[in-house]
Simulated assay, not measured.
Amino acid sequence: MNRNSSFEESADEKEVFRDFNKEAPLIIQSNALPKECADQYALVYQSYNKWKEVHKSFLSVCEENNLIIYLQDLQNKMKPSSLWSMWSMLMKTLSANENIDLNKFVKLKNLLKNCSKGYRPKKSAVLKWQHIEEFMNRAPDHDYSSSTVSIVTYPANSAPGCQKMREQ
């Protein structure tokens, strides 16, 4: 027997013990979520599962109804933009872990749209260049040294719109 045939036999033996039905979902789970914020996605998924555990005696057979109640409960604590983020993270994690497609849940999506009606996000205040210079020159160093350092260490011309700030 030559070496190649023994290699082929050992490769075939390994293939016999593989279970593609178990491997495929694991591959999907590990590659479905963005790597940078996978912890945040996992936290949202875990909080939904904890909520389900607490309310297990009331849960519906229909997952959409459960999600509607869950997001309705969160609506009292969160802004609509945060609810959309939660929905997006749940959509990815439920799809990867439980093969549930939230895009099919039309009532849930309509609820989120209705929650967002009339919502206006707050605009962040933007400092003009003259205000930054005034702060740098007038602020006492012993009180605002960390703020001054963070402004000073920001590389010149690297901020988006830095030139616009100087012109204003």
Rank of each mutant, 00 (worst) to 15 (best):
K122V: 07
A24Y: 08
S147G: 09
Q163W: 01
G118R: 02
M89C: 03
A139K: 01
S5C: 05
T93H: 04
D73L: 05
A139W: 01
H142D: 14
P140Q: 05
E63T: 14
S145A: 11
Y48E: 06
Q130R: 10
I151E: 06
Y144F: 15
N137C: 13
R120H: 09
L74E: 10
E13Y: 07
I151Q: 08
E15I: 06
L83N: 05
E8K: 12
W87N: 10
Q29W: 01
Q75E: 13
Y154W: 11
P121H: 04
S88L: 09
L112G: 06
E134D: 11
Q75M: 08
K14F: 08
S124W: 00
S158V: 03
N157L: 01
N31H: 09
M78Y: 12
Y144L: 11
S60I: 04
K123A: 14
C62T: 05
K109V: 03
Q168L: 10
D19V: 07
N65T: 10
K52D: 03
M78R: 11
N4Q: 11
N76E: 14
R120W: 00
V106E: 11
N99P: 00
S147L: 13
H55V: 03
D19W: 03
K117R: 13
V126K: 10
A42E: 13
R18L: 15
S6E: 14
D101M: 07
L102H: 02
Q29G: 01
M136E: 10
C62M: 12
F17S: 10
E53L: 07
L94S: 04
Q40K: 08
E23C: 02
K128R: 12
L67P: 06
E9C: 04
L111H: 04
K107Y: 00
K50Q: 13
F135H: 06
S85P: 01
I132Q: 06
E167G: 04
N4Y: 06
P160H: 05
S145H: 09
P80E: 05
Q163L: 10
S81C: 11
L102Y: 00
V126I: 15
A32F: 00
D19H: 07
S10Q: 13
C62R: 12
V126N: 05
E23Q: 09
L94W: 00
R3E: 12
S146M: 09
L102K: 04
Y144N: 05
M165C: 06
S82M: 08
V16E: 14
M86D: 07
